[in-house]
């Protein structure tokens, strides 16, 4: 679980590109040339969506993996940002929307989401472990019922629609290819931000709090402050993802932040793996593929296409039963087994 690396033997220059593992290059090139080899639908409805869901799950992974705080409120934080973009910016409901330009609306939306997430976190950290799940679930559900019942600010059941991604620098960011690169840039930024923070003094202290909160408190660390800061940081990621989400869908409604999607985020993070920031993205791409193509597969097997939830639920159950650290855990176990000598059972080098 620990992500603490050994200190490098010599001073490493950050521009020393030869130290970057080859996997990163391969993945990077594939992601960059993807628009050339795939259609608009795949780009928009699979990859962009998966990046956004991956970012929201990444914010959960950061809290759960490094802080042992399983928060179900991340989707709600993203939803708050999405709603705020629609309220501050433009939407079809011009009695509600302020009509501010995007460069005011979007940062403000992220700010509101961070404040909301931090406050939720401040509530949730008053308890520990299993209680955190219950309290964050309660917050998420309360927020869902609030936006569904409130018509003056959130336009109730139907939500706010026709929220468009802006046009700037001469590029229409609604078009699939620019939007894909936009989400890619933010997802990559979020990924490296999490990797960086997890190795920073703050991240190491957070992992210390995860492993033994009492000892960290005795060492003079402010445990509660670390936890709340972790919530604030993860809310930042979730908030940015929320802005992208409303630009992708063009609308936001209570269904966006219902309990179902909140739990889906948890499923994505757990199925992908909570041990490393790449896990949520793996889980997200798997989820999006399932979500998009499960219908065809189910129909091919002679079942009704609407049994998609059942498939997701059963798959989730199987993964949780057999590998509590998701796909990453399966991969690591496979690697360990492959490394072991088949005759003696001892580990081999390489």
């Amino acid at each position: 679980m620990a992500v603490i690396e050994e200190a490098a033997p010599r001073a490493v220059r950050w521009w020393d590109v030869s130290r970057i593992p080859v996997q990163y290059y391969v993945l990077g090139v594939i992601l960059l040339i993807l628009p050339a080899i795939s259609g608009d639908f795949v780009l928009r409805q699979i990859f962009s969506w998966a990046m956004i869901l991956g970012m929201i799950s990444l914010s959960l992974m950061f809290l759960a993996g490094y802080g042992n705080m399983v928060s179900l409120v991340q989707m709600t934080v993203a939803g708050v940002a999405a709603y705020m973009v629609a309220i501050f910016g433009t939407s079809a409901i011009d009695t509600i929307s302020f009509g501010w330009p995007w460069w005011v609306a979007a940062p403000l939306a992220v700010l509101v989401a961070v404040v909301f997430g931090t406050l939720s976190g401040a509530l949730a950290v008053r308890t520990e472990g299993i209680y955190t799940i219950m309290i964050t679930l309660a917050i998420a559900a309360a927020m869902f019922y609030l936006v569904r019942q409130n018509y003056t600010l959130f336009n109730g059941f139907s939500g706010l629609n026709q929220v468009r991604a802006p046009v700037f620098l001469g590029v229409d960011w609604r078009a699939p290819v620019p939007f894909y690169y936009l989400t890619l840039v933010w997802a990559v930024l979020a990924y490296f931000a999490v990797v960086y923070v997890s190795r920073s003094p703050f991240g190491l202290a957070l992992q210390g709090v995860r492993d033994n909160a009492r000892r960290m408190a005795a060492l003079g660390f402010n445990v509660t402050a670390h936890r709340i800061t972790a919530y604030a940081f993860s809310s930042l990621i979730a908030g940015i993802a929320g802005v992208l989400l409303v630009w992708l869908n063009g609308q936001v409604s209570p269904g966006t932040i219902a309990v179902g999607p909140a739990i889906d985020i948890l499923i994505i993070a757990v199925v992908g793996g909570l041990a490393h920031p790449i896990g949520p993205f793996l889980g997200a791409i798997l989820y999006v593929l399932l979500r998009t193509f499960a219908l065809d597969v189910l129909v091919a097997f002679g079942l009704g296409g609407e049994r998609f939830q059942l498939l997701i639920g059963l798959g989730f159950l199987v993964i949780v039963f057999f590998s509590s650290d998701g796909i990453l855990g399966l991969w690591r176990r496979y690697r360990e087994r492959a490394r072991r000598d088949p005759v003696t059972g001892e580990a081999r080098d390489g």
């Binding site: 939830q309 059942l310 159950l317 039963f321």
Partner: peptide, 16 residues
């Protein structure tokens, strides 16, 4: 955590 996740999975399955 495992119990919670499993019960979430069960509730999704039962609901469907």
């Amino acid at each position: 955590l495992k119990q919670t996740l499993v019960t979430i999975g069960i509730s999704i399955v039962i609901a469907d």
